[in-house]
Each structure stands twice: as C-alpha cells, then as structure tokens.
Design a protein around this nucleic acid. Structure first.
Lengths: 244, 244
DNA sequence: GAGTGGTCTAGACCACTTG
DNA sequence: AAGTGGTCTAGACCACTCT
C-alpha cells in the first residue's frame, strides 16, 4: 500500500482508510456477495500487505457503516439488505405502543416517464431522462398508513419493466437484481395537508395533516439512486428519531 | 482495574469499557468541567494503571458519544453544550434552502405545576410531583416557526424560579447552573392540526398541518431530564434526518 | 482442538500545535 | 524542541463457534 504519499502528498490518507477504500471497491465490483463470509483478518493482512491491526481498523470502519457484520468465532460477513436489522435502519415509522411490525404494500401504478427538474436534480441525471415511477400504499397492522411514490433512473435499472412483481422490500430487490447496495439515505420531514389524491387510500379527510417524508437514498459510492416521497397518517404511529 | 472478573464473572466487561465508565463517572461528579482539557493519554494510562492503547479506546468511545473532543497536538477536551456543533446535534429544523440559522426565542410563560401521568411516566417521577413548565415561541430567520412546552422535574432544578431570564439554549443553562449534561435524546414525530392555542403565535389558520416533535432528553447516566413538545410550521423549513 | 474475531500490551513513528 | 493525539506494527491472550 502507498504509505509514503509520494504521488499525492497533500490529501494525507491513513493506511487503514486506503485499505477500507480498496475493500469497498471490491464490494462494489461484486467480488463478495451479500451474506457471504470474507477472508479472515490474518488472510487479508497477508494479501494486502499490512498488519492485522490495520486490517482490523478498516473492517471496524466498514462495520460502523453497516457494510459488514462481524461475529466472534464465525467470521466477517457482507451485510444483506433483506435482514430485519437493515430493514429498520431505513424504516422509522413505528406504532405508538412500541411493537415493531413489518409493513405490507399494495402497488397502485408502475410506469416510466420523463424526469422533471426535481427528480433530475436529486438523482444526478439530465432533465427529461427516462425514470421509473412506482406508486404504492403501505399498511401497518392492517391499517393503510402511507402512500408513497418512488422514482428510479431507468439507466441504472434496465429491465425494470419486465419484473412480474415488485416486492415489499425494494432495497433487497436493488441488491439482488442490479447489485446496487443502499448504504445511507437523507430524509426531509414536513407536515402537509392530505389531497384528494391520497385521502381515499388512507381513509382520511381531504386536508387532514400528514407527515411527508422526502428521501434520497445513496449507494456505496455516495451516488443518489432513488428518490421517494411518502405521505403518512400518524394517528397511531410515529416517526422515531434518535439524537446523539 | 478488575480484569479478572472474579467478583461478577457473568456480565463480562472489557477493560476499556470499565475505564470508560470510570471516566464518565468522573465527568458526572464534575471533576472535569466542560471546555477543560483532561490529562493526556500517557498520564491517564499511568494513573489508571492500564496501557495507553486501552485508554485510547475508552477516550475514542467517549468521543463517539459526543462527550469529548480530541484535537491532535492540543489535547482532549470536555464537550461544551454551548458549542454550535452540539447545538445542531439536537436542533434538526433547517430552512429548505439549506442555510443553517440560529433560532431566537420568546418566553410566553414559566410556572410550576403538578405533574400529570405522561410527564411523571416519561420523567421517572411520581404523579403529582412538582414540575416546572416553560412555554415559548421560537423563530427562524425572523419567522415564528414553532411553539413549544418544556417540562422539568423541580427536584433536579432547585432555584429554577429565581432565574431572571431563560436563555435560548437551555442545555447550556442546565450544564452551567445544575451541572446536568444532556447526552442524547429520542424524538417522536407526528403530523397534527394547529389548535386555536398555537395558531395566533404561528400566524397560521386553525387546523393547519403542524409537525409535532415530542422529545425526551437524557443525561450522562441515561436518566430522563426533560420532556418537550414542539409544534412546528414547516412551510419553508423541514426536519432533517440522516439514516445509515 | 482449531479457527475466528475481540482485547490488551508495548513500542515506534507520524502529523499537528504551541512555545 | 517538546508535547499532544493519530497511525502502524507485532505478539500475546481471551471469548466464541463449529467440528
């Protein structure tokens, strides 16, 4: 590994960060599949040519980013989006009584369209580029709780129209079908009034207060992959946020 | 340090966690004040009787918890609640255009009352115990944006009624006046309709959708210190949440 | 018992800040 | 130049899992 920094001396990068970046690149290239074990610390140390301690720091950093899962006595595994732990990393709506439940989904529409200015800006594509759009209603505990629209750049999701069905957990689909891992997301929350488009699906009055969540989901490289707007009835559920 | 675990063998605690707990205890007892430098790694290692690497792991853990701030070449400092970095750790409402601004506050009322069941349950006190209550309106960029009520257990905030003024940043006040550090908080978000009590303050219609944030703030020991309910107009501002 | 990750130690050197 | 935190190494031992 380049530890001297002779080629690019200014942006000094610690060795363990260089190792992390190299390992993330191998993840992106699909060298290790979700759920698989990666080589042990000792093997990686020999292979990369650094000490076990440096490999450990790189693996610990990736574990903190939810890319890996380490189990004492078993090994280091590539995180899988379909695991419940990862699911609730991105699903923050929980019933007021605290019992976590899996949502169910009903697809309303799936179509391709030309991207508007907002979709183009947030997804990093040109205005007018083809995008896929999915509308669906999601229920918690048999109660229709939110309507949401998902936009995906068609260029990264070829063959999307051929899918027979769209599963409830689309991040698992992105991973299995296109090898795209959602690493993190940033959300903006607002309170809005229900329109006549969504009120019937949520069985609420037009004008009822809804929680609007606008999410941009990013892949391992930090590139935007998905834009999603959800409008939620927060009668017996709420959005949970932990600070600190 | 107890590394053998002979006394309580079952809940195995790594040495660096024991060191962390010991250092946190010294923080709680007020041995090191916010903003102060604590001893260097080498000194602490000699003092506690473990290696420098173990001290480092303990200090790194506390840094990750926002209790300490480490600066290469200078030293390790106790985090101060009045620093802007810590302020925005707990203030997640930002203008849509992205420019972060400091809110200003106007106090509406300050009084003591008997705790109801909700306040008692969340603050860990008995129903009917005396609590302080503060009502205020906060503005972002000269626009009244939220009304909020804060409840504090009177037992932990003696002399609260004698304060001439209540500053905008109450967490700095808790720290300076009572030595209470807010370490983390958990928030529940809902969309609600504006009532006639808050509509005039926010210059909005009764029934307008508001973002309601219910926060329980915890101290260094994880004990609840403050209950706060904020109702926000999210016309040109939003609540920012980072996932992953 | 063999292999994995987790902890702990000791020492060297690097990058940054201050006098 | 001296002192701080940050990185890197090498080796030992511990706790856990599987065969």
């Amino acid at each position: 590994m380049d530890q001297s920094g002779a080629v690019a001396p200014f942006p000094y990068k610690p060795l363990y960060v260089q190792v992390r970046d190299q390992l993330v690149r191998r993840l992106i290239e699909g060298q290790w599949q979700p759920g698989q074990v990666i080589p042990s610390e000792m093997e990686l140390a020999r292979e990369v040519g650094v000490s076990q301690g440096t490999i450990r720091k790189a693996l610990d950093a990736m574990t903190a980013e939810n890319l890996l899962i380490r189990r004492q006595g078993r090994g280091t595994f590539v995180a899988r989006p379909e695991e419940s732990r990862i699911l609730f990393q991105f699903f923050r709506l929980v019933p007021d009584d605290g019992d976590v439940t899996f949502p169910s989904s009903r697809i309303l529409a799936r179509c391709s369209e030309a991207s508007g200015s907002r979709e183009a800006a947030t997804l990093g594509i040109a205005e007018g580029d083809e995008i896929w759009r999915i509308d669906r209603v999601r229920s918690l505990a048999e109660t229709p709780s939110l309507v949401e629209t998902i936009w995906l750049p068609a260029a990264r999701f070829s063959g999307f129209g051929d899918l027979a069905e769209i599963p409830n957990n689309v991040y698992g689909l992105y991973s299995e079908r296109w090898g795209i891992t959602i690493a993190r997301a940033s959300e903006k929350l607002k309170a809005v009034a229900a329109t006549c488009a969504e009120a019937p699906h949520l069985r609420c009055e037009v004008g009822a207060p809804l929680l609007e969540i606008t999410r941009v989901a990013l892949d391992l490289e930090g590139k935007p992959v998905e834009l999603r707007v959800s409008r939620c009835l927060t009668g017996t559920i709420h959005y949970r946020s932990e600070l600190g």
